[in-house]
């Protein structure tokens, strides 16, 4: 009988632990996907590399720099040696960790328009909406942009 209790306990503990571990990963992974910032000038794909989340530019409304007539590059990077880095594929969200319920933090956001990197925290307000808050030192000194999730038209139709 004792064995039966032990077995039941083992199964229960493992199931609960598993569901916790599994659900945490799944919760964190909800950040993955394609997102559009409010300015609509770019689309950002967030992926996981190692244990952290990174977002790269996969689409630009204006991929060609009107000044140079060539594909846009990171011309405002404070590191002059990297100014020819192409913006397409550029990782502007870096090093995000799932730190709290619906919140990813400890990361940074880079603004290619002025070459500045800001501390950043991401809050998922619903499955398809992110509050991206870039700030300087303290969160009060910041600005929030709302990003919306994008998906394939076919995926929507099939739902």
């Amino acid at each position: 009988m004792n064995r039966a209790i032990l077995v039941a306990l083992l199964v229960a503990v493992s199931t609960i632990t598993y569901s916790f571990l599994g659900s945490d990963d799944a919760k964190a992974d909800r950040l993955k996907g394609i997102w559009q910032p409010s300015h609509g000038k770019a689309k950002i794909k967030i992926d996981k590399i190692g244990s952290k989340y990174y977002g790269k530019i996969v689409w630009l409304k204006e991929p060609i720099d009107p000044e140079t007539k060539a594909p846009k590059v990171d011309k405002n990077n404070p590191d002059e040696s990297l100014r020819s880095t192409p913006l397409k594929g550029y990782r502007i969200l870096k090093d995000f960790e799932y730190t709290d319920e619906d919140e990813w933090s400890n990361g940074t956001i880079y603004d290619p328009e002025n070459g500045s990197t800001y501390s950043c925290v991401i809050k998922m307000t619903d499955e398809n909406t992110l509050d991206i808050r870039g700030y300087i030192g303290i969160k009060t000194l910041g600005r929030t942009d709302v990003w919306k999730r994008l998906e394939m038209p076919s995926k929507k139709k099939s739902e």
Partner: peptide, 22 residues
């Protein structure tokens, strides 16, 4: 290829762009 970018990433250090050619 049009260009190539090399970056480092890790759990405890911020992702860093170390080299490019474009």
């Amino acid at each position: 290829f049009n260009n190539v970018v090399v970056q480092l990433a890790s759990d405890n250090a911020p992702m860093t762009n170390i080299a490019i050619l474009n």
